[in-house]
Design a protein around this nucleic acid. Structure first.
Lengths: 334, 334
DNA sequence: CTGAAAGCGCTAACAA
DNA sequence: TTGTTAGCGCTTTCAG
């Protein structure tokens, strides 16, 4: 309502060329004489002209904005996970000159697919319908952290099952017999699969974890604290605990320390994520690394391929997690 | 490139009315007969038609997307502050049917102002130029957490000076004489002013804090840990510490507890923000509340007023912080 | 290498 | 209450 209206026409006027020529220099079309290009550039600079993005999108028939929809349940949002995804998507959008339209969903309020050229779903929790709706519009979608094979979407995930297994494997290899876990949110694939990988491995080793060793958390520090207190209160407390996120691992460690015990001397702890905070707490945390930032970037890149017409369908990819050994896990005492 | 092209015309066709009528029902113009409205709605539903936002924006001459630009320095991003602003802006955009274009800046990569109808700057750190550039385009701007009086922008801030003072005041009223502080990032107004308020009050009380009692942090847990260790290592350690954010307060408390001391029995700690995490740690943290979420919502609301032409200029507002007394601060021992 | 002109999908006078 | 029509600012054939 308020914006000044410097249009391509004003520029053309000042440069004494046609708007077509201005459009050409805007779009780096080579066939413009140096002389004209110079004049146009001068005019653009002088008038501080910025092309109207809506007009460009309309004329091109392409929307160079991508949506990032994030499930809004309490835990996720204050997590390293969410932040890294946002950062990664943001960074990638910037280098690709895409706008990032950010949207938090409660499962019912969809992002209007027509506002964007493609959508990245940062996990899907109770919002599968939204993915389907977007797809129905012809909007390409890609989901992070969730393998979905029955929908025409791409996904970028890590092998959470392998990650859970890896954690258990490492702890067992250290000599632990009593291993507990604080899980992630149980309605996420990541939370579920990390637990499964963890449990399956232990079962295979004939040391299935008893119920009291499995605390169903939600990735928050709050849950981790409760879990840790519960574990420590057991008549037969675990000698090691696997937390499904580093934030939780950090809180478990804090509780242990508060009780006057040592990590890893008294209890070993292993996390998940490779949150830089792992390095700055009381003990450097051993963890399972997942390349969140990179995954987010990759999601944008792939989505952009199809938005810009360079590709027909999104190829999915499953990254492998990686064990990062630091100081919070060691062989049990006796 | 890929999107299906169901346009307003297709809808008009199917409903056997003009596109104008379709446009009218789209925009809730009352003067449409119930009969036609019904037909149009049926057609829209049947065709799953979604208006093309770019075309709407172009035709209306108004861009109903708002930009949120967040400074990208390491500390801020993993902070409660950033998250709450994002949440608040996101929530408000949703209720007002605005798109939120999120942009992280390093100080050099501006958000293209022509992509949005207005911009919210979540603090300005080394990116004042961007605000000026946006303003030059005629794009209305509002900045959060930074009072700026020499530019034609609105601002929504809290009185950080009063907040710092409030913390010092409370601690002094409890009987503390040796009060230290871990500050926020010193190139933010919030960090600076909280420190000033804190220091000025103490000076007025004739108990100016010595240099060793002031640790220049950056809102991160990492700094807080270093600060706490430093404070505790002093020959004359403080009996109370004011942390410029709750995250830092939480970490300070963790360090104290790790050393086998108690909070608040041995040392009192007071934070800033009123992060819900205050409630779930080892001690409920006494803090200075700032209504971040509400501030963010307010910013959107005010920006929208001028974008939608209901107002000419943005009114600024400075909220007052509020002391929230919980368990982490008490009278000193002896 | 350059420009005229026809849209892109929608809104908003203006008539009817 | 409805439809006709002229743009919104830009891209993109198609001639020249």
């Amino acid at each position: 309502m308020n914006k000044k209206r410097i249009s391509i026409e004003d520029v053309a006027h000042r440069a004494k060329v046609s708007i077509t020529t201005v459009s050409r220099v805007l779009n780096n079309v080579p066939s413009v004489s140096d002389k004209n290009r110079g004049k146009v550039e001068e005019a653009i600079a002088f008038l501080k002209f910025k092309p109207n993005v809506s007009a460009q999108r309309l004329a091109r028939g392409v929307n160079n904005a991508i949506g990032l929809v994030m499930p809004g349940y309490p835990g996720i949002f204050h997590s390293f996970y969410a932040i890294e995804i946002i950062r990664g998507v943001g960074h990638s959008c910037e280098t690709l000159k895409l706008d990032m339209v950010f949207h938090i969903t409660n499962g019912f309020n969809p992002l209007n697919a027509s506002n964007v050229g493609g959508i990245i779903f940062a996990d899907i929790i109770e919002n599968r319908k939204q993915v389907e709706a977007a797809l129905a519009t012809g909007t390409p979608c890609i989901v992070i952290n969730n393998k979905v094979d029955d929908l025409d979407v791409g996904y970028i995930a890590i092998d959470n099952y392998a990650g859970g297994k890896m954690a258990a494997d490492y702890l067992v290899s250290l000599g632990h017999k009593r291993i507990a876990t604080v899980t992630g949110e149980m309605n996420t694939q990541s939370g579920l699969q990390r637990l499964e990988g963890f449990r399956d491995f232990l079962e295979k080793k004939n040391m299935p974890p008893p119920k009291e060793y499995i605390y169903h958390g939600d990735y928050s520090r709050r849950c981790a604290r409760i879990a840790a207190e519960q574990f420590l209160g057991l008549k037969n407390p675990p000698t090691a605990v696997f937390a499904a996120s580093d934030e939780m691992a950090l809180e478990v460690i804090a509780v242990i320390l508060e009780k006057g015990m040592k990590v890893p001397n008294d209890i070993s702890v292993i996390g998940f994520d490779d949150n830089p905070a792992c390095l700055y707490g009381p003990v450097a945390v051993t963890t399972i690394r997942q390349p969140l930032f990179k995954m987010a970037e990759e999601a944008v890149r792939r989505l952009n391929f199809i938005i810009s017409g360079k590709s027909q369908s999104i190829k999915s990819e499953v990254f492998q997690p990686e064990l990062v050994i630091r100081d919070s896990a060691a062989a049990p005492k006796h």
